[in-house]
Write a protein that binds this DNA or RNA. Structure first.
Lengths: 204, 204
DNA sequence: AGCATAACCGGACTTTACCCCGCTTAGTGG
DNA sequence: CCACTAAGCGGGGTAAAGTCCGGTTATGCT
């Protein structure tokens, strides 16, 4: 799917009605999500409820998972702002290792809060979609790793591995039932374990 | 889905015709997989080609992903045998850390070899299915971690994290195109990075 | 303003995973 | 050998994802 790029004034800019529809669809999707839960949010229903055609829904988001990815991106934007320019230890100003630990804790919280959306955003056929979710997470981890003095190591792959270690448990291995049952404890333990892992990896 | 347990002689054992059909379906699935690729392997086609009803296919495997999980399990069984009783450094006899490194290398190879099936075995709705794939991997890593003297650490979660760091890149983050393009290199780099990661985590 | 064109829209259509339920058959105990 | 029962079987039916294309509308240019 080739998304219309949002370069201003350039040719192929997103048309005004398209923007309107996109925002309206996202709002409607959020409503339905809160009302019905992720797996009862169907494309037909979304189209009907928003008063638009099904074709429009698919052109805007490409795929069902795409909707959840877009929804997640919204949250991610706010989150990234905290990370990039918020107060330490999450934002700049703290030591890189502290930031890395704080980042993991915050991301666990974020994913836990949006776990329904995050799960639904996974698409079996395609790997993690461009412009969404992980790339940002991975890039941030990669950046912080670069600021920590580590011996010889392939920081790019290490960042991928750490991202997987951070997201994987929540996205892949813990069942929804596990989480619903004891979410706060799970969140605490995952954050703590992330800290342990990072400290192990990054010590001299 | 509640699979018939294979406790011998106990009530509810898997019936003979069911076994026949299951094996036949798996064989047919393997054929179609080799011939058409994973995403053209459809349930209807599988049913028709195997000469069985659609209902039978679903009763046997529960879901589309279930077929690929079953297929993967077959390979996994052979793999596990190597791990549990093959020659060192993979099998017993080597130091735990060496075994852990060797295990990662072997698993990367295994997943790379079966990446199409492994991807297709992921089910968006459900977390990693019981009796399949990761639990074995996770358990093995957990066991080896237990044999390495680590400081205070939650070995259970650490095992989950390492499993994610091992499987995640291949299952989630690397696109099929990336892999097709430079599979051997990717395999080498992932194995090397696994070794780096584990050595970092497990040093005193 | 008027025109040309590129996006966009809608909804019918196709494909496919998955469900259901009446019928059949394999196993068992007498 | 026979009945009995639970498991298994088949294939038509449903719902939801994703595609297509003829008609519509926004936008840039003159």
């Amino acid at each position: 799917m080739d998304w219309p790029v949002m370069t201003w004034g350039a040719p192929h800019a997103e048309r005004a009605d398209a923007v309107r529809n996109r925002l309206h669809l996202l709002a409607t999707a959020r409503e339905m999500l809160a009302e019905l839960g992720a797996d009862r949010l169907t494309m037909d229903a979304l189209a009907e409820r928003s008063g638009l055609g099904k074709g429009t829904v698919f052109r805007r988001f490409g795929t069902r998972a795409g909707i959840f990815q877009a929804l997640l991106d919204d949250g991610e934007r706010a989150f990234q702002e905290q990370v990039l320019s918020g107060p330490p230890p999450l934002g700049p100003g703290a030591a890189p290792l502290e930031r890395l630990i704080a980042y993991g804790r915050a991301r666990v919280g974020f994913l836990m809060e949006h776990r329904e959306i995050a799960r639904a955003a996974l698409d079996g056929r395609q790997p993690i979609p461009a412009g969404s979710q992980t790339p940002l997470s991975q890039m941030h981890i990669r950046m912080l790793l670069g600021q920590i003095h580590l011996g010889p190591a392939n920081l790019d792959i290490l960042a991928v591995q750490l991202t997987a270690a951070l997201d994987g448990p929540l996205l892949l291995y813990l069942s929804a039932a596990d989480l619903r049952h004891a979410a706060p404890q799970a969140e605490q333990r995952l954050a703590q374990s992330w800290q342990d892992l990072v400290q192990r990896v990054c010590r001299p």
